[in-house]
Each structure stands twice: as C-alpha cells, then as structure tokens.
Simulated scan of single mutants.
Amino acid sequence: MSFQAYLNTIKAQTGKTPADFRQMAETKGFTVNGKLQVKATEITNWLKADFGLGHGHAMAIYALLKGIKDENSQ
C-alpha cells in the first residue's frame, strides 16, 4: 500500500486530513510549533483509541507528525 493510499483510507475512515491531525496533535501537546514532543507509542495509542486506526495507519500519521513523510509522499 502506498503512503497516499494510507492517507486516503484514514480520511475515509475518520473524515480527517493530515492538517487536521497536525492541529489536533498540537492542541494535545504532542507537538509544539510542529515539532514532535512524544514517542510514537503515545501517538499510536491516541489514534487507535480515539479514531479506531490500526497500527499501520496510526504509524502513517506518526510519520507525518515526525516529518518523515508528507502529503505528497508516494
């Protein structure tokens, strides 16, 4: 599955865009000025609990928040 396919599935399941997840992470204090402040486990636990995402999809959002990937990644 391509990274973009992960993002498409996440949007279909949650109705949230990458920008929405960035904003929510900032509000929760997981990021400060766009810089990740927590470990991957905290992000994946949040996304699994609040949005029902599986581990792979939660890790895709983590990759966005960490700056490893962006919306234009394939």
Score class of each variant (00 low, 15 high):
L7I: 03
A25H: 10
K16L: 15
G52R: 11
I10P: 05
L65M: 04
E42R: 13
T41R: 15
H55Q: 13
R22W: 02
D50G: 01
E42C: 00
M24P: 00
E42H: 03
Q37D: 02
T41P: 04
M24Q: 15
T14F: 08
R22P: 00
K39G: 15
D20P: 07
N8S: 14
A58I: 02
Y6D: 12
Q74R: 10
Q4T: 11
T44P: 03
S2F: 14
A60F: 04
K66C: 13
M59F: 05
K16R: 15
A12M: 09
T27L: 06
G56V: 03
Y62L: 08
T17Y: 09
A60C: 10
D20C: 03
Y6S: 12
K39A: 14
A49L: 05
T31M: 07
A49V: 05
I10M: 03
N45A: 13
H57T: 09
K11D: 01
L36W: 05
F51N: 08
A12N: 08
N33Y: 09
Q13T: 05
M1Y: 11
N8Y: 02
I61E: 01
Y62P: 00
A19E: 14
G34F: 10
F51C: 02
Y62I: 00
D70F: 01
Q37M: 15
N8L: 11
A60D: 01
A25R: 07
R22K: 15
T9Y: 13
G56H: 10
M24S: 06
T27G: 02
I10G: 01
L7F: 04
T31N: 07
N33H: 14
D70E: 02
F21L: 09
T14W: 06
K69D: 03
L36I: 12
T9F: 08
E26Q: 14
Q23N: 13
D70M: 01
T44E: 03
F21T: 03
A19L: 12
A49Y: 00
A19D: 15
A25K: 10
A25T: 09
V32I: 13
D50T: 06
I68F: 08
T41F: 07
N33S: 15
G67P: 07
S73R: 03
K69E: 09
G29D: 04
K28R: 15
K39S: 09
T14E: 10
S73E: 08
K69T: 09
Q74S: 11
T27R: 10
L53K: 04
A12E: 11
T9A: 13
